[in-house]
Design a protein around this nucleic acid. Structure first.
Lengths: 333, 333
DNA sequence: TTGCGAAATGACAACGTTGTCATTTCGTTA
DNA sequence: TAACGAAATGACAACGTTGTCATTTCGCAA
């Protein structure tokens, strides 16, 4: 029946003006007489006109979209996406998203190749695990690329939580309160977050001349923390435990109590992510919280700032915050 | 220095063939002689050619992108996005995403207006709370629109978890095991999930001629569940509690135990979302789990299926699953 | 009323692809 | 070798915008 798509030309004819005038009504309304503008608006309304994105971007040479590649989509990612999306809105960009498929092994080059076929002016890679071509990857020269990852990249801008710093902060918090050593419960081996948190823990201890004990391997879930806690309960020198997330920290605490020990009187515990209070009433767990939302905002801003100079390179670290509750005992007191 | 963008024409000249041949190499390689194809490929490589999305979609009249509007971006959304994204990949679509900004009040009409300026062939609205224009909204006639929401919509296709059914299932699970009544702890008032779960709970009780007791108001977090638990501990007729999520269910359980009651011996509890095991070691909580990932997949498939007939309308319910642990006592035994 | 500069409007090309249809080249058969 | 049909390739228009530059209209002063 109707023509499939209403074009500016159709509107122009209906309003009795030229094509260009319709264009002006949309892009620089002040340059059009009010009476003309009204005619055009009525015509647009009547015909149900919607500007054609493809034609517009073809002419303008840009899309107003930022690509986001999720190599890994997990719980913490929500706040980050939220930050990215909000910052994008604010700056007038939309997001174009693709995801690594389950099982598939995606390289940075592959991600860049796919993204560059899509409507994007720049892109953000959210990388939570190592990929094969990390060091050799070169971003397209005309497409600003920001990688969210704790590792430094030779050519691309990167943005990351300061996970290492957060872990150091937690350790120093223990040490400054008279603890002589800190045990560590890690997350999944392949997780970069877990690796960085472990690195920070090691560094903090070594900086004080303390030999780090063997870390206990966990898998992020409470049961693995519980298992670790059972082991730790038998170590007489264990007064402080840093767990790579809150769930495992809770597992540790429950195990310690099941073994007749008190938190924090016998053993102090710190976790990461500050989310235990959502699930445990009256939670006492002190925790290092990262500002994922802020991270997303920074990443997006970095892309937008680099649109004109895609080859620029920067490194942004977003610091963590220690949310203090009562799971750490001050031994000096 | 270089021309900003390398076009198919540049490639054609470099390869000594016509523009159209380059086009064919990309879109129907089999129709091009191998020797020619190689020349073209080399030229593309040498010049760093990347097809222009805008021009291509302008000509084709479609984008290969599905729009996703997140009215609310919360924890459970991750799995859903994951499902949407995976299904999109599989069918050769990318996602274009926008988000309601914090504080902003977005209507369906507003969301549709913004989406229709973007490169999308169809769209998905993820709606977790009521919006003002829900009943009056009409989707653009040429843009298939699917709304993820438990409410029926007069003109758009909808997809939803069967939250009401899940709640009914949990109640019947109690009742079939000899419980004479079920108390309910709700989530935030404005949440549609909470409303539906409450509705299912009511319906299940009324179907058996049981007068539903006054529901207890929670806010999704454990502390509100704890408060509810303290109240429930004093009700002698309370043997079964359905909490609108696992966190509150845990709060309830802790409160009951603090009051000297045992779960499940004195009081049985069921939650929603089956995520407590991540945070609590040896979790015993029976829980209704929704398949968010499946939900996302269905939503995307529904959009794609409707691309040719945007005005078609369907309603999809994805059933929940009761994950059985040991927090419910069989009173008949 | 006329003339003038500024404001408003219009004609046309261009962005980089793909579809249509015409033309050239190829491999086969007579 | 000529003739033929099929395969390969090419010329050109078109998609719906915006930029450039030309033209028309307007408001105001002389």
């Amino acid at each position: 029946m109707d023509k499939k798509n209403v074009s500016m030309n159709d509107v122009a004819v209906a309003a009795g003006v030229s094509l260009k005038t319709v264009s002006r009504v949309i892009n620089e309304p002040d340059s059009v007489r009010e009476s003309t503008r009204d005619k055009v608006h009525s015509a647009m309304e009547a015909l149900g006109f919607r500007a054609n994105f493809a034609a517009r971007s073809l002419k303008l040479g840009r899309y107003g979209c930022i690509g986001v590649v999720m190599f890994h989509l997990s719980g913490g990612a929500v706040d980050m996406i939220d930050g990215i999306a909000d910052a994008a809105e604010e700056r007038g960009f939309a997001l174009t998203m693709i995801k690594k498929r389950a099982g598939e092994k995606m390289t940075l080059a592959e991600a860049a190749r796919r993204m560059s076929q899509l409507p994007v002016d720049g892109m953000i890679f959210n990388l939570r695990q190592m990929v094969d071509d990390f060091d050799t990857f070169e971003a397209p020269k005309d497409l600003k690329t920001v990688i969210i990852t704790p590792m430094e990249h030779p050519t691309c801008s990167t943005v990351s939580d300061d996970q290492e710093g957060g872990a150091r902060m937690a350790c120093e918090y223990f040490l400054n309160r008279g603890h002589k050593n800190v045990y560590f419960v890690s997350g999944k081996k392949e997780s970069l977050s877990s690796q960085c948190r472990m690195k920070g823990w090691r560094a903090a201890l070594e900086a004080r001349g303390i030999e780090p004990p063997e870390p206990l391997q966990g898998d992020w879930n409470a049961d693995s923390g519980y298992a670790a806690g059972l082991v730790l309960a038998d170590k007489p020198d264990c007064t402080a435990v840093l767990a790579a997330n809150d769930c495992m920290a809770n597992g540790v605490m429950v195990a310690l109590r099941d073994k007749g020990l008190s938190v924090p009187d016998d053993v102090s515990v710190i976790g990461f992510d500050d989310e235990l209070y959502k699930t445990i009433p009256n939670s006492i767990l002190t925790s290092v919280k990262f500002r994922h939302r802020e991270l997303g905002i920074r990443a997006l801003n970095e892309v937008v700032a680099g649109l004109e100079a895609p080859s620029s390179r920067s490194r942004t670290l977003v610091s963590g915050v220690l949310v203090e509750r009562s799971s750490v005992k001050d031994l000096r007191a």
